[in-house]
Computed example of a mutant assay.
Amino acid sequence: MRTDQQPLRLSLFAPDGRMGQAIADAAGADDEFEIASDHGDVLIDFSAPAALRQSLDRAVSAAVPLLVGTTGLDEGHHELIREASRTIPILVAPNTSLGVALLADLVERAARVLPTADWDVEIVEAHHRHKADAPSGTALHLGKSVEIGRSMDCKEELGRSGVGLKREPGEIGYAAVRGGTVAGDHDVMFLGPDERLVLSHRAESRAIFARGALAAARFLHGKPAGLYSMRDVIGG
């Protein structure tokens, strides 16, 4: 229970979605939280890119923090988020798993230590048959961690097909697998001379994302306006 004995009230922008239902279930099992039927202390959006402007307007109008867990956002969406973050605190997380947040930190550290000239990076992800975007937002987020570690922009190879292919030094390759009910698998492979380092995460249910969303909402409450990430939540 929070120190003031009042549960943190969460508003779900898309309460009927898979993640909305998972977050409601997680909040129902934790007396630090409750789902608000009107305006809550934090707004959570796990909907679709087309709905982002609406959730941003709602959060800004209510002057409440916003957690954006939507994937498939483009640069235009991120510009809208940056503009709104001047007014309210916003946390953008393509994956709210605490384990993935730690994985991203480890990937960045590995990319910083392992020489780019000798170590290639490939990212392989697998998700359920209904996932609409590829590569996953998490895979791209992990690729960004590689770029931060290497202090460089890396060319993206979004799936290979054909003959006579040649890998360019420093590029990041992505491969996406879709099928069944896979909640989310991610492997970041550092492939060097005579050795490989593989950093992996396996999601076994959406419950891990829901619990991470609760942790992110707890972190956001009371924060000043600005742009935050799951790395802030885990103290990275």
Rank of each mutant, 00 (worst) to 15 (best):
R2I: 00
L8W: 02
L8R: 03
L12T: 07
F13T: 03
A14K: 07
G20W: 05
Q21K: 15
I23V: 14
D30I: 07
F33R: 01
A36F: 13
S37V: 09
S37C: 05
D38K: 14
H39C: 11
H39Q: 15
G40H: 07
V42A: 10
D45R: 03
F46Y: 15
Q54D: 13
S55N: 02
L56D: 01
L56I: 12
D57N: 12
R58F: 05
V60P: 02
S61H: 07
A62I: 00
V64T: 04
V64M: 14
V64H: 03
L66G: 05
L66Q: 01
V68M: 04
V68H: 03
T71G: 13
T71P: 06
E75Q: 15
H78M: 15
L80K: 11
E83L: 14
S85C: 06
T87Q: 15
I88A: 09
T96Y: 06
A101S: 08
A101R: 04
V107T: 12
V107I: 11
R109H: 14
A110C: 14
A110M: 09
R112S: 15
V113Q: 14
P115G: 12
W119H: 14
E122I: 09
I123P: 01
A126P: 07
A126T: 15
K131C: 10
D133L: 12
S136R: 10
G137N: 10
L140T: 04
L142Y: 01
S145P: 01
S145Q: 07
S145R: 05
I148E: 10
D153L: 11
C154D: 04
C154H: 10
C154F: 00
E156I: 02
L158K: 05
L158R: 09
L158P: 03
R160H: 04
G162D: 06
G170P: 05
G173F: 04
G173R: 03
G173P: 08
V177L: 08
V177H: 07
V188I: 08
F190H: 00
F190V: 02
E195Y: 02
L197S: 06
L199A: 09
L199F: 05
A203N: 09
E204D: 15
A210P: 02
A215E: 12
A217R: 06
R218A: 11
H221C: 11
P224W: 06
A225S: 11
L227F: 01
S229R: 05
R231S: 07
V233A: 04
I234C: 05
G236E: 11
G236D: 09
